[in-house]
Design a protein around this nucleic acid. Structure first.
Lengths: 169, 169
DNA sequence: GCAGATCGTAAGCGCATGCCTATGAATTCT
DNA sequence: AGAATTCATAGGCATGCGCTTACGATCTGC
């Protein structure tokens, strides 16, 4: 295993020993989203709505702007989503007594129930994929994902100035 | 290892032991793409162009339609990309002598050089990310990615009927 | 040789999205 | 009190994309 880079990365600058991370991960994400779609449809949720439900539970969110930032959505774009979720009794949107400009967002019991049901079904489908991995790699894979997801340089940062999407990935 | 799901998935249907795969992978892919962008800019390549260069080398592609399918692009959309790449001497686009409707696509030496340079730079950046993973997990992570990428159910399949993008991820 | 299918190309439609601006309500600073 | 800021909301603009249609050139089957 000289500079031929057997399982080493492309550190040696030659032709790559592996595909680009993005070239593997982005399509993977695409496929996962595609797999989610039917489940979400079955639960009457859009991807945005599901994302909102997920993030409302995970961290205490106070302002809609904060929520929008957290899920990388436009502040003005989640309004309709929230309107819908509220109308269906899945979330509460009460004016903050401390700062009546803001609307306090929280899940209703019904919302939590739906979120749990959808997420459970989704993760069940994902497990079918993970089952394809050698058991030895599986937990490491998940651990690695969680590690990378927590990295600061992966944080939303700041979309510096792009209109709409960019590339194929 | 009861139903409490320590490192097990959400098979037991309760609150999830981990975030959704998509919720971790999609942002990761987004971040990777964002990290690629400056490198591509520096090499004078768009994401589409880079993707084309990558796929032209990897598998012998004969028709533009096949290429478009392989990179999940619209047949009509890569034309401009190919025009540009050809004009810059990075690819050849000769009419197939066997079927003069088709254009044979191939990388020029210059194209291969640029592709190698860009990919090398990109993977170098990716290595910095991978370095954050415990060495024990790293190779397994990459192996898992390659495994999952090769899965048939992750293959482009067929975008069944979506207009533009869909969700937040 | 003619009909139908295929390839590359061009042009247009519709859609989802991000960004910007404006408006009104409420808060904070001076 | 008045000015500046923040929040939620609404509307409009521009972009990137997928899909469809159309067209000419070409290949294939009859």
């Amino acid at each position: 295993m000289a500079e031929n880079a057997a399982d080493d990365g492309a550190t040696s600058e030659g032709r790559p020993a592996r595909p680009d991370l993005a070239a593997m991960i982005v399509p993977l994400g695409r496929a996962l989203m595609a797999a989610e779609q039917p489940v979400l449809d079955a639960h009457g949720l859009t991807m945005w709505a599901y994302t909102v439900l997920l993030h409302l539970e995970e961290t205490p969110i106070r302002t809609q702007a904060a929520l929008a930032g957290a899920i990388r959505a436009d502040k003005t774009r989640i309004i309709a989503v929230l309107d819908d979720l509220e109308a269906r009794g899945l979330i509460h949107r009460q004016p903050d007594p401390e700062d009546r400009r803001a609307r306090l967002l929280s899940l209703t019991t019904e919302g939590r129930r739906l979120r749990d049901a959808a997420q459970s079904a989704i993760q069940q489908g994902e497990e079918r994929l993970l089952a394809r991995l050698p058991a030895a790699d599986r937990s490491g894979f998940l651990r690695s994902l969680e590690t990378l997801s927590a990295l600061p340089e992966l944080a939303p940062g700041k979309p510096e100035r792009t209109t709409g999407r960019k590339g194929p990935h």
